[in-house]
Amino acid sequence: MTTQAFLKTSSNLALKLEQVSKNFGALTVLENLNLDIQPGSFVAIVGRSGCGKSTLLRLISGLDQPDTGTVFYDDQIHKRLNGHARVMFQEARLLPWKRVLDNVCLGLCKEKKDRALEALQHVGLESKAQEWPSVLSGGQRQRVALARALVHEPRLLLLDEPLGALDALTRIEMQQLIEKIWLETGFTAILVTHDISEAVTLADRVILLDGGKIDLDVAVDLPRPRHRDHPKWIQLEEEILNRVLNTPES
């Protein structure tokens, strides 16, 4: 399979957060957070809007710095943006003035066009390589954004609600695609989402954030691909959902 050759297994990244806090003015968004993420695992972070999950992702990526505490990549202190992590945002954030293929090439040298094309093949969009992003559908744009992230062979992929704006069907397709690519390449993945069923479908471990603290941390020990009618799947989803709904809004 060409995809296997393309996505060489690069070593995965171990992530650790130690006593991390972040404030915006008087508002404490994250408070003394400790988190240990195994290399190659798929972790989902869920919670109500404003619970600090996106802030947490920005701290992990290096886009923002914590006020106190430290982020470690493979036991090294991580301060600035670096090449190990790539982010998929809620919006695709494609450059409208670059054709699809050139968007995927962003930040690569010119010789790597072939790799970009392979990445597009991987998400099933090689036929759109020469189109402008404005003619693509929302789901296709997110697939291009995924290809753009994969081309860099990230050791850590951060997903900031990338499927939030898609329709239900496209969403399920994208979930399957992300799962497939993750299984093939084995990068460490952190998914921020407000959709609990998405978290239980994709992640090995679901972390519920509330009021800037970890409220729940459960392992999802289900065979893949996961089916939503599996009794344990239903039970887990309910357990997490009830926890979210029962915690008083902060």
Binding site: S61, L63, L81, G83, R86, E91, L95, W97, G107
Partner: peptide, 27 residues
């Protein structure tokens, strides 16, 4: 600003940020 942020995450240097994102956006 979201595109600029994306460019930073994808490792563009200040000149690339200008020539690939800011200038085409201003054209």
């Amino acid at each position: 600003p979201q595109l600029i942020e994306m460019g930073r995450v994808y490792g563009l240097n200040p000149w690339q940020l200008f020539s690939q994102i800011i200038f085409p956006g201003a054209l």
